[in-house]
Every structure is written in C-alpha cells, then in structure tokens.
Design a protein around this nucleic acid. Structure first.
Length: 621
RNA sequence: UGUCCGAUGGUGUAAUGGUAGCACAGAGGUCUUUGGAGCCUUUAGUCUAGGUUCGAAUCCUAGUCGGACAGCCA
C-alpha cells in the first residue's frame, strides 16, 4: 500500500464519504444501494450450477462474486443445484460440485454458506393472506454438518407445478401440441415475428386437464408442452410464448421416477430464487435477454413476498484454454486428458490436483473485477496470483529434474556433511533443515554448457559456480560418452567457501541447485504446459486442433531426502525451478486412480518460476 | 436488415461532471548463496464525429466495431 502517514490519519472534517473497503463493482454498487434504501433485511445470493459437469475457473469467478457479496453484507449465499434436466445431470457431478465449492471457500466464506436440512422441501405458509411457499435454510454456516445438503431446484418440483397451475388458471399459460419442429417454425426469427400456436386459446379447463395428464405420463416425449402466453410478436424471442414444461420420461438423479414433466430453466430459476428468498440473482451476460421473462413469470404469479432481481456480468474467458463444459466433457470422454481432474484442465479439481491454492484462485477472481465487457483475460494475470501465493507459503527444496553427475575430486569419498538450508526465505518461522552433501552430486543438465553464450551465469569448463547452501566449485574436466554427450563433470570445491568459511564471501556469478547422489530420492515429476497452443482455441473451427502436444512431460527426478516426508497438503518450491506438489488424484473424478497404490512418489509442477534468462536465451524444446 | 448489451495502455480494471490511476505483462536499474522474491525507475490508454457544459472517459445524438439471443439446454 502506498498510503502516506498523513493520509492514514483519521479525517477531521466531514469531507467526502470514505470509500467502502474491499472490491467494488457495478453489482456491489447496486447491492449497496438496495441496502441503503432498506429494501432487504438481509442480502441473499446463490450459486446455482447445473450438475452436468465439473466446476471450472469460470465458475470460481461466479462463486467469488456471489459468496463475496454475501460475506461483505453479512448475508447468505445458497449453494443450489440447478437440476431441471434429468437427461444431462448426474449425482457424481453434484458430489464434485459440493466438494469443489467447499474447497474454494474454506476459511473464507464457509460462515455464510447456505445449505438446507437434508430432504427438506419448501414449507407452505400464508403471507399477506396469500398461499406461499418458502424453503428455509439450515443454520447458515452449518459447514460439513451431515444433516445438511445443498438446495436443489428439483426439490421444488411440487411447488413449481402449483405455480404452473396458477398460471394456467389465470389464462397466462397453455398446453401446446406443436411438435418441436413446428414450435421452432412458429417462433420466427430475431428479425421476423413469430405466429401464434393454434393451441394458444384452449380453455382453462382443457389446459388443466391436459397438463395434469402430461404430469401423469400419458403422453410421449415431445408430444406437448406447457407454454407461457405472452407475445409471439415480441422483438425478444424469449417472450414468444416460451416453453415452461416439457415431457421427459426420464428418471432424475435426485427425484427418481416421480416426475414425467420437467420445468425449463426460465420457469424454474426465478421461482427457485423466490422460494429461497434470494434478493440478488447474479448470472452471466447470456441471460440478459431472459431477464424480461424472469420478471414476467414472477409478476404474473402475484407473489406475496419481495421478488428477487437478476443482474448480469461477463463470464470469464481465459487465454489458452476452453471454458465450456461441453468442450471439457469432450476432452475427458475422448481421452485427450486423463479425467476431469487432469492438472491441465481449468476445472477446480484439475487446478487443485495441479497445486493451485484456493487463495490464489480467489485473489485472481477478485483482481479481474466484474464488468459487462466480454473480453479475454491474459493467463499471465492468473499465473501471477498463483506465484504470489505459492511464493509466500511454499517450502523450498532441492530437486534435480534432469540430472548431470558431478564428482568433487578434492572432497573426501567417505565424508557426508549435513548443511543448513532455509525452508522459506519469505517466512523465517518455517525454519531450517539439514541437507546432506557428499563427493558425488547431481546438478541440472541445463546448468552446464560447454560453449555458453555471453551472460550465462552457470557452470562452464574452467568456470566457477556456487552450489546453493554449500561450496563454490570449479569445473575442471568434462567427461563424455562415445556419442559426445556430456555424462559427468569433474570439479574441485573451494573448501573454505561454505557458510562461515574464510572464502564464503567470495562472489561468483551463478548459484546452482544440487542433490547428493547417495542420498537422492527418485521420483516421477510431471511438467505441465498450457493445454492449447493458441489464446482462443474455440475462436474458429475445431478447438481440438489446437491441443498442445507438449502439454505434459514426465521426468524422473532426483530429490533431496527431506522430500521423503512430503505432505499432500503442503506446497513446495524446487529451488530455481518452480512450484510443485504431491500428485493426489481426485477421489470423485478419479476413484480408481485415487485408490491405486503408488510405487513411488509423483509430483506435479504447478507453475514454473519466472525466468528472465529463459526469455533472453533460446529455449530448449 | 430485429431486440438487448458493451467499448479506457498489450491484458484485466479504477475514476459515479473537476489532475486519466492501479495490477499484470514489457523495458531499464538495484539487491541477491534461487537469473526467484523484494525494491526503484519507465514505456503505453479514454472507438469516431457532433452536441450540452466554465469543464466530458463520464451526460445526449449519430455512427463504427464487438458480443448475446431463433433448445422441448442451462
């Protein structure tokens, strides 16, 4: 912060109103205005994913917005499954969504997470002498209490049916016998008005009878629909008698075989918001044209409690990845990646397995702000948030990804020194550890060049380099195999240059990481790169053409022995290389892999360190 | 040639009629037993044209460009 001491003093006069702390954006402004106007006793938002896929970084933006607002307003944010289409939704997705949301908001917004008592459906009540339904939350912040569960739109099917009946009785909805193709044809086009369905003026009695029989399962899929009676000539296509209910002879993951008709999104969503007492229903831009319908349905019902209002913001587009659940599903199903939790995926489970922390994701989502401009966010912004968090918390360790053997010819063969190494220079409280040092070491192949370019601050024949935490060494001899590949370096150490030694203060240009050969721990390390080769893979054509063939590289690395006690919940920086974490497959997305025994440890590279040398120098393939 | 929405450095954003600021990225420097981190400096922007106003990124009009919408998906 660049707050000067003087400006940090309390304001004396009653000048301009102080800025609200925390993020501001046009939605928060509106919430604050509603609050000031006394329109709501409590702000209630919701995060309403459809359980037809795994949550991704785009959902994280929505989660941070909805939970963030509720948190700032001491309100509540309901987690709700928007599950009105039984043919696309599965219980596995519900499970993953709940786990992902909990993971992302843990320690940040769990206190305002709205869940409901397990199995509960809306209660009937009387408000202003009118029949009303309300779905109360469980104690907010009930956390992992097993007697709670998310809200489900499908828990409102009975009430939704009642509301539909109400619309029919008031002549605001009718049963339509048009085939799907004819419904399309009658709807017209954006620049051409639609024409009324021939079934538009059925009697209330007939509509009631038909709708009842639709519910009873008397008609096949697609035979009839319930439609709102609005305006077939409306310039807004969603107001041209939109379908409210369709027939689906399909079992539902949450309601089983109870229903043969299922409500459409537009009908279910606004009413679900109402039933839960949502004050601000925040969604993405593509629903903007639906807002008149959202309002129409609620108003047509003359509901006794305050109505929710919809606000739209731009969804996240992130460079070098795809965000549509359909496309991500395709990658999973076609085996282009190894499941929803593949560390290359932008899914929350993928990012988690990759080692990205919830705090980094939240920092990123807060940083990009909330607007109605549909842009493309540079991944560098995300990478910055990831590095910033990891730099503060990761434990430093020495690891060599591509080993090159070094023999210190003047170092005793039977000597092993335990050297002190700091665990985290950003956090002294992380302490120190001992690292064994011996005559034979591994260094990184990249850290030696026989004929280096200028400004190569690493090892070269006749050159000197500092071994981190240890001695300055000089390369005396390069050993090659018969094909000319460098297989070993023979060096001498300046034995006085260790910390505390007489020549410890000598300046050498480069510092290099290393691992003692006899103490080295072998492990598999996966190096990830962006999944796609272009910033907008789905801009045109088949997005899969742009898949990066080098998005993963697996190496056998040599690690310092302290890594034997690696913890799955901690993050590590392999010095000079990047941030890594133990690979932990997601138990929901990847149950088989999660249960399988590991012959040896596997690490995932979350992200490489910023590397100004790599930018200046030609990078190896 | 429908309706709705949007446009501020390369990217993401702030400025709510009154000095166009921040972060990322880029460049340069400093420091460093991580070519990391930190610290310092720096390049770069209001889509166009009119209008209102003492004063416009902001308000108005027109245009340009971009996006969303024609599922019995959400």
């Amino acid at each position: 912060m660049n707050t000067t001491p003087s400006s940090a003093q309390p304001q004396t006069g009653t000048g301009a109103a102080p800025r609200a702390p925390g993020p501001t954006d046009f939605i928060r402004d509106m919430v604050a205005a509603d609050r000031r106007a006394g329109r709501h006793a409590k702000i209630v938002t919701r995060f309403p994913p459809e359980p037809n896929g795994y949550l991704h970084i785009g959902h994280a933006k929505s989660i941070c917005l909805n939970f963030g607002i509720a948190r700032e307003q001491q309100g509540q944010c309901n987690l709700r499954m928007d599950d009105t289409n039984p043919t696309k939704e599965e219980a596995e997705y519900v499970e993953s969504i709940v786990a992902d949301v909990r993971w992302l908001i843990a320690g940040w917004a769990d206190a305002i997470l709205g869940l409901k008592p397990k199995g509960q459906t809306p209660a009937e009540q009387t408000v202003k002498e009118r029949r009303d339904f309300f779905q109360a939350p469980a104690r907010v912040g009930a956390g992992t209490d097993p007697s709670t569960e998310p809200f489900y739109a499908s828990d409102y099917f009975a009430q939704l049916y009642e509301y539909a009946l109400e619309l029919v009785r008031h002549g605001r909805a009718y049963v339509c016998d048009l085939t799907p193709a004819d419904t399309d044809a009658y709807r017209g086009a954006p620049d051409r008005p639609g024409k009324p369905s021939p079934w538009r003026d059925r009697s209330v009695a007939e509509n009631l009878d038909l709708f009842e029989r639709m519910k009873a399962g008397e008609f096949p899929n697609g035979a009839r629909t319930l439609r709102a009676k609005i305006d077939m000539a409306s310039p807004n296509i969603w107001m041209r008698d939109p379908v409210l209910y369709r027939i689906r002879h399909a079992d539902h993951h949450h309601t089983g075989n109870q229903w043969r008709i299922y409500p459409m999104y537009d009908f279910a969503h606004c009413l679900s918001d109402y039933l839960e007492g949502i004050t601000h229903s925040i969604c993405t831009l593509e629903f903007e044209v639906h807002r008149p319908l959202y309002d129409w349905i609620l108003e047509a019902l003359h509901l006794p409690r305050p109505l929710p209002h919809q606000f739209e913001f731009a969804r996240l587009n992130l460079g070098y990845t795809v965000m549509s659940k359909r496309k991500l599903l395709q990658l999973v199903q076609e085996g282009r990646v190894n499941g929803w939790d593949d560390p290359r995926m932008p899914t929350l489970s993928g990012l988690r397995r990759r080692g990205v922390t919830p705090a980094a994701i939240r920092h990123f989502c807060t940083g990009i702000g909330v607007t109605k401009y549909d842009g493309l966010t540079d991944v560098a912004l995300f990478e910055h948030s990831i590095r910033e968090d990891l730099n503060r918390h990761a434990l430093r360790r020495l690891a060599v990804l591509r080993p090159l053997k070094v023999v210190l010819t003047n170092y005793p063969a039977d000597l092993v020194e335990q050297l002190d190494a700091v665990n985290n220079p950003e956090d002294p409280s992380a302490g120190t550890r001992k690292v064994p040092f011996s005559r034979e070491l591994y260094i990184e192949q990249d850290d030696f060049l026989e004929n280096p370019p200028p400004k190569f601050f690493r090892l070269r024949p006749g050159g000197e380099v500092r071994l981190k935490y240890a001695y300055i060494v000089m390369c005396n001899e390069v050993v090659k195999d018969e094909t000319g590949h460098v297989i070993e370096l023979r060096c001498t150490a300046d034995l006085g240059s260790k910390t505390g030694g007489p020549t410890a203060q000598r300046k050498v240009k480069g510092t290099v990481h290393w691992v003692s050969v006899p103490h080295a721990l072998e492990a598999e390390v996966r190096l990830y790169d962006r999944l796609f080769t272009v910033p907008e893979p789905d801009a045109a054509g088949d997005f899969k053409q742009h898949l990066n063939p080098h998005s993963i590289e697996v190496v056998t690395a040599q690690l310092e022995p302290a890594l034997r006690e690696v913890r799955p919940d901690l993050r590590y920086q392999f010095e000079r290389l990047g941030y890594f974490c133990l690979d932990v497959p997601d138990p929901v997305a990847n149950p088989a892999e999660a249960a399988a025994p590991r012959p040896r440890q596997a690490f995932n590279r979350t992200i490489a360190l910023r590397d100004t040398w790599a930018k200046a120098a030609p990078t190896p393939p």
